[in-house]
Design a binder for these strands. Structure first.
Lengths: 186, 186
DNA sequence: TGTACATCAGTGAACGCGCGTTCACTGATGTAC
DNA sequence: TGTACATCAGTGAACGCGCGTTCACTGATGTAC
C-alpha cells in the first residue's frame, strides 16, 4: 500500500544505512539486495522503487556514508591527532561495519561505476584538505603533501591490520603508524 | 585423457597465474571458475582435479602470488628506494593485474578463509623485515616501526590512487607518498 | 470540513540467468611383466 | 625392449541453487472538489 512521504524518506534512509553497514562488513558482491531490504524491515520487491539497480545502490550508499552532512557547519571537527587515534584504534579495526567506508571498500569501489569513483575522489579531496590544516610544513604545498602521506598511511594501516591473522602484529601496525602520523617532524 | 606429470604441473601453474591476474584485476567474486580455466586454456570441468573449491583456489592463489620464490637466495633485492619508486608509480597503479596482491585484494582477502589471512600475515612480516633493513632510526625497534609506517603509506597510497577518478590527484597521491617514504628524516 | 478517487510504495510470487559443482566418459600416460 | 592394461587429468553436458530483476496486485495516502 501507499505510505506517507515521511515514511518513504525514512525507509530510503534505512535501506542506505543497512547497505552501508553490510557492504563494509562483507563487501558489495556478498551482500544481496534481499538481505539489505530485510535488514531495513522491507521486502525485496520494493527495492526498485528506490534504486535503479544494485549498482545504483552501491553508488548511492557511497555518497550516503562517505559524504554525510556536507561540511557540518561550525560544529567542532575533532583535532587531527584525536581523529588519527580513533582511526588507528583496535575498535575501528574490529568494527568495519560502522567505520571508514574507504578502508573497507576502496579497492572494490575502484572497480565500480564512475559515480562511485567520483564520490571517492570528492571524499579524498575533503580528507586531504582537512588534514592539511594541521599537517607540518612551512608552505601550504608542503602541508598538503604531508597530509596526503599521512592519510595514505592511515588508510593502508587499517586495511593491513584487518587483513592479517596475527593480532600482535596487527596492533603493532596501528600503533607504529599512529606514532609516525603524530610525530611533528614527519 | 590422461596427461604427463610435467604437463599436469604446468597446467596447475597456468591456472594459478591466470587466477592471480584476473583476481587482482576484477576481485574474487567477479571472476568465475570457468573464466579462469578458459584463460588457462582448459575446460572448467577439470578444475576440481586441482582445487577443492573456488575458496581453495583463492587461498592457493594468494600463496602463489604473494610468497613467490621463498627468499630468492642471494639475488640482489632492489634497494628500498627503487622498490618504493616502482611501487608508487603510475605504471603499477594502472596495471593491478601484474602488481602487488595486497594493494588489489587485501580488503577482500580479510573476509576470506583463515588460510588466506595467514598468508597475508606472512607476507606482511616479510615485507616489514625487508623494509626495516634500510629504514631510518637509531634502534632496531625504531627502524621496524618506521618500516611499518612506510609500508602502510605505500599500500594505502596505491589503493587510494586506484580508487579515485581524478588523474591529477591520483598522481599527486603517489608522488607525495613517495616523497615522504624517501625522506631520510621520516 | 467532508467525500470520492487517483496515486504509488510496498508485497511476494515468479522469471531467467549464470554461477559453483558433479559426473559419465575419453584416451594418453605410466607401469607391471 | 615390447606389450597389456590400470590410472587419472581433461572434457563438456547437466544439475541445483540463489541471485538480480519484474510484475500484478494491495490499500493507505494525498488531492480535487
Amino acid at each position: 500500500m501507499k505510505i506517507s512521504r515521511d515514511k518513504l524518506i525514512e525507509n530510503r534512509q534505512r535501506i542506505l544505512d543497512a547497505a552501508a553497514r553490510m557492504f563494509r562488513e562483507r563487501g558489495f558482491e556478498a551482500v544481496t539486495v534481499s538481505e539489505v531490504m530485510k535488514a531495513a524491515d522491507l521486502t525485496h520487491g520494493g527495492f526498485y522503487n528506490h534504486f535503479k539497480s544494485k549498482d545504483d545502490l552501491i553508488a548511492k550508499t557511497f555518497a550516503h556514508a562517505l559524504l554525510p552532512a556536507p561540511t557540518n557547519d561550525g560544529s567542532a571537527e575533532p583535532a587531527m591527532v584525536d581523529y588519527a587515534r580513533a582511526y588507528l584504534s583496535g575498535a575501528h579495526r574490529d568494527a568495519p561495519g560502522s567505520g571508514c567506508m574507504l578502508s573497507a571498500l576502496a579497492a572494490e569501489g575502484a572497480r565500480c561505476n564512475d559515480e562511485t569513483r567520483k564520490v571517492m575522489g570528492e571524499a579524498t579531496r575533503a580528507q586531504i584538505a582537512r588534514f592539511a590544516a594541521t599537517a607540518p610544513g612551512t608552505t601550504a604545498e608542503a602541508r598538503r603533501r604531508a597530509a596526503i602521506a599521512r592519510w595514505s598511511a592511515m588508510l593502508g594501516a587499517v586495511i593491513l591490520a584487518r587483513a592479517i591473522d596475527d593480532t600482535a602484529l596487527s596492533d603493532e601496525i596501528l600503533s607504529a603508524t599512529l606514532e609516525a602520523v603524530e610525530a611533528p617532524g614527519s
